[in-house]
Design a binder for these strands. Structure first.
Lengths: 241, 241
DNA sequence: CACAACTGTTAGACACTGTAACAGTTGCTA
DNA sequence: TAGCAACTGTTACAGTGTCTAACAGTTGTG
């Protein structure tokens, strides 16, 4: 951690990288992932082709950076929402709506994360952490869940997971305690909460994903109603107040 | 409809088109959608570059054909499964597992349909029909559904849809009657069945989609268990026997 | 103040899409 | 059955994009 002052050079470098990503995001929004082209970015910056390779190792590296940013943005957006809502089921609705709002506002970024994966791409470990950050608020919602019998198997598997992996157990405990307090929740409780969170996330992805790719445009229902219904049914099945 | 005999020329043409699609599918499987390249397909066929444009107007046209084939394959796969299962909830599980099996067997084709859409692509009307064919068996499962209160809003919206659009109403009636018999089901019943089918499809897409893009690899649960649980919870919520 | 790192350039290899112009083949029809 | 029109294929080429190599100017820092 010998990171003293940034220095003027590193400053300029970071600024240029940010500009590149900015233009890339615009291209992404306009024509999808296939439209992100280094040469055109360079032209728009007044640079010439290969100069961009000073800032990103290649196209894949740039896209990886965009993916990481998107994950961070999702975690931030979800994390900032619904904390105040009081009955747990209202909090669940708020979390789901928050992600939907983000995804509909920037569908290309949703697709960047949850659309077709890049062929050679393997998510860096940091991505994993951010994905968990996004899931954490959901785990908190299901802190005192009492799942219906049909959900018992999944909850049991996730409880076993918490028993096997200490890091997971600790993470779950932190989510349950609301971030403070280190009271170690038992694995069964963690399993129930994780099962609720994973299921919520799956349903959320199901509704929003289909909406983003336009599979609902010919159906006669409002996707938001469907999302609310899915979260309410989940709250019912997990006995949320 | 003046389509007499195919003729030897049309025969050869169709055969070549099929070969092209075959190679394209292999490229798709190996390196994703970005790896489908007309020039390499031509080389593999012993043809030279532009010859392929005699068979497909361009890369997008070829990909559109692959998309249409994939939709048809999904409709066929789902349509052929689970018809025999007796309690409705068992049929629902079977349908869901059938799609999951297809998607895990050919993840690239799942992504072709449900991953990031091609920038300029708009689905041809035939796609719409095939998508409905895939949904039809699910509608049948929910023929006598009694949705929980949380699902009432969506069911109501879809009932209204059936009231507005006669073609939808007829389609729903056919699904409910199992394909035979023209007894016009009332719109309320159609709305309930459609709501169940749409929700089932959404959950199915949620689980399978996340599994295909590898979002479950770091989670300690079995995706199949989650899928079964989601379908069972849905059967509970819709009062399926 | 001098050097090393940084930032940028041009030239070029390679792959892919798609068009243009042209030539051989074949099925159909007058 | 002779001939034409449609079909199938070719080479040449323009345009775009990724990425490497070799080289040059600039600047922060020891």
């Amino acid at each position: 951690m010998t990171v003293g002052t940034p220095g003027p050079r590193a400053r300029y470098r970071e600024r240029t990288r940010a500009e590149i990503k900015e233009i890339a995001l615009r291209q992404l929004a306009e024509g999808g992932i296939g439209s992100v082209a280094l040469t055109r970015i360079a032209k728009e910056l007044g640079l010439s082709g290969p100069a961009l390779y000073r800032y990103f190792a290649g196209r894949d590296d740039l896209l990886s950076a965009l993916i990481l940013d998107a994950y961070a943005d999702v975690a931030r957006t979800v994390g900032e929402s619904g904390a105040a809502e009081e009955p747990a089921r209202a909090r669940l609705r708020a979390l789901a709506r928050a992600y939907r709002g983000w995804a509909l506002g920037e569908p290309h970024r949703h697709l960047l994360i949850y659309g077709s994966p890049l062929p050679g791409y393997t998510a860096p470990p940091e991505t994993l952490r951010l994905a968990r950050d996004a899931l954490a608020p959901f785990v908190g919602v299901f802190a005192d869940a009492r799942p219906a019998p049909a959900a018992a198997a999944v909850a049991g598997q996730l409880a076993d997971w918490a028993r096997r992996d200490a890091a997971v157990a600790q993470w779950a405990a932190e989510c349950l305690a609301g971030g403070a307090g280190g009271a170690s929740a038992d694995a069964e409780r963690a399993g129930r909460a994780l099962a609720g969170a994973v299921t919520a996330w799956t349903r959320l992805y199901g509704v929003v994903g289909l909406e983003v790719i336009g599979q609902f445009t010919t159906m006669g229902h409002d996707p938001l109603s469907l999302l609310d219904a899915e979260m309410d049914l989940l709250a019912d099945a997990y006995g949320l107040p």
